[in-house]
Computed example of a mutant assay.
Amino acid sequence: MASSFERYQKRRLISSYFSVILSIFLVLFLLGSLGLFLINSEKISNNFRENIPMSLYFKDKATPDDLAKFEETLKTAPYIKDFKFVHKDSAAVEQQEVIGEDFVHFLGFNPLQNSYDIHFNGEYVIKDSIKEIELTFKENELIEDVVYDQQLVELVNENITKITFWVLVISAVFAFISFLLINSSLRLSVYSKRFIIKTMQMVGATKSFIRKPFIWTSVKLGMIGSILAIIGVLAIAYYADSKFPTLLILEDTQSLFIVCGGIFIVGIIITYISTFFATQRFLNLKSDDLY
């Protein structure tokens, strides 16, 4: 009978520990994922901005030497990520494949122009900067036209600002919820041992002596939950890196260290504080109140 009761108590204890670890893991995993997003938000936003092209169309009087000189200026410009020269004959072939007709033969000449397709570094793809770059290009008398999607630039920047703001708000809300969830799980774990706490107190054990094993056990559970959350966040980082290799998330070891270190420290701090106040509450209760 005693052995059966002991097995029941052991199963209940393991179940209690498992629920605490699961709560810590889920909450810290979510917070860590949001933290990883926030730290890499600039990279993510720049990745979207850098995919917005600008096309420069040159007049027919622009000679190969003129184009070569212009290309040299592009190579040295700090705002240029990459560029590609599109010869008007190549553009005509591509256009013929799209529309399915040989319009050059029909017109008797190629109406298209030599052009450069340019992608900028992300920090320059904002309204004021890209407008200034556009005006600089238009000062070149050899350039016929400068074309880019101005509305898309504004839309991307507005959405990035909104997303960043709401991620910060959501992170703060989840940080608060995480504390409540972990605190509730730990309080339930301590609640199941309230009679043991009171018995130890009645035989003369000090409050710090009684708290120590509870806090140490909770901190160990916090460490386990934190390590599982770190593994989950690293898996998310690996997945994101495989889908968006230009972000180089795994290569940014400093950011990963900050996120993983933050998860581990938060897991320890929350479990320590929650267990301290939970045990303190039962230590201050009278024996009659335990029921």
Rank of each mutant, 00 (worst) to 15 (best):
63 T>L: 08
75 K>N: 13
33 S>K: 01
58 F>R: 10
103 F>Q: 03
68 A>G: 02
16 S>K: 03
25 F>T: 11
19 S>Y: 04
91 A>L: 10
96 Q>N: 02
53 P>F: 12
33 S>P: 00
53 P>M: 13
46 N>H: 14
87 H>Q: 10
87 H>S: 15
19 S>E: 03
85 F>W: 07
61 K>I: 15
60 D>T: 11
97 E>P: 01
91 A>Q: 07
20 V>W: 05
27 V>T: 08
47 N>Y: 14
101 E>F: 06
35 G>E: 02
102 D>R: 01
80 I>T: 14
27 V>P: 00
106 F>Y: 02
37 F>W: 07
80 I>A: 05
87 H>M: 06
107 L>H: 04
100 G>A: 10
93 V>W: 01
61 K>S: 13
80 I>L: 03
98 V>L: 08
66 D>P: 15
69 K>T: 13
93 V>N: 09
34 L>D: 01
101 E>W: 00
48 F>K: 10
34 L>Q: 01
22 L>E: 00
82 D>G: 07
103 F>R: 04
26 L>Y: 04
103 F>V: 06
83 F>E: 05
26 L>N: 04
56 L>K: 15
105 H>M: 01
106 F>T: 09
28 L>E: 05
44 I>H: 11
71 E>T: 11
20 V>F: 05
54 M>W: 12
28 L>Y: 02
78 P>E: 14
27 V>A: 09
92 A>V: 00
23 S>L: 07
72 E>H: 04
45 S>I: 09
85 F>Y: 13
17 Y>Q: 10
67 L>N: 14
83 F>D: 05
21 I>Q: 03
43 K>C: 01
90 S>A: 09
58 F>A: 09
25 F>Y: 08
74 L>F: 04
66 D>M: 06
69 K>Y: 07
54 M>V: 15
